[in-house]
């Protein structure tokens, strides 16, 4: 793996401010970066790694727009330090599908009109992905509970829930 110093891009740290070198596997690719210890994971992902699909909404772990999968578990990247991710795996929305082939959850969100402004969507989809990996056949209530850490102001959630159930169906069909 190439050693990429993203020092310049992540934060213009003045001389004398210590940095830490961290290696994080992001969407299957190992990335090594020098970061200021206080840098938030969300900011590393957005500014340093230029993966702007992860959004920062509330800064207080409430809204879930910054949700990423951390070793497969949904976490709020706005309140985790980048250094805490050293040696771990992070998955963002950019890792869900490819430009030509969508993940069934992405398809479901489009098919069921599960998004409007799109700001909460990446976090919602990742929270849904974590759910469906554990529970491929969830009930509506299980979907609602699993998404209760992610706020949406546009949709009223009903279509988001339908989108996740649509994806669950499709993923089970693919398994069968």
């Amino acid at each position: 793996m190439t050693m990429t110093s993203l020092y310049e891009e992540v934060t213009q740290v003045p001389d004398g401010v210590p940095t830490r070198r961290v290696t994080i596997t992001v969407n299957g690719q190992k990335r090594t970066v020098d970061v200021e210890p206080r840098l938030l994971l969300a900011h590393l992902i957005r500014q340093g790694l230029k993966l702007t699909g992860t959004h920062t909404g509330c800064d207080t772990t409430n809204c879930g727009a910054c949700t990423v999968l951390f070793d497969g578990r949904p976490i709020k990247s706005c309140t985790m330090l980048a250094v805490q991710a050293d040696g771990h795996k992070v998955e963002t929305v950019e890792g869900m599908g490819t430009a030509s082939e969508l993940h069934p959850i992405q398809e479901g969100f489009k098919e069921e009109h599960g998004l409007q402004c799109g700001f909460c969507t990446p976090g919602m989809m990742l929270a849904a992905k974590a759910l469906l990996e554990k529970n491929p056949n969830p009930t509506e209530d299980e979907v609602r509970w699993a998404l209760s850490g992610n706020l949406c102001r546009c949709t009223g959630y009903q279509n988001i829930v339908k989108a996740v159930l649509w994806a669950a169906d499709k993923m089970r069909d693919q398994q069968a």
């Binding site: 993966l51 992405q106 969100f109 799109g118 700001f119 989809m125």
Partner: peptide
């Protein structure tokens, strides 16, 4: 939006 490619 579903690809995280919106531009806010």
């Amino acid at each position: 939006f579903i690809r995280g490619k919106g531009q806010y």
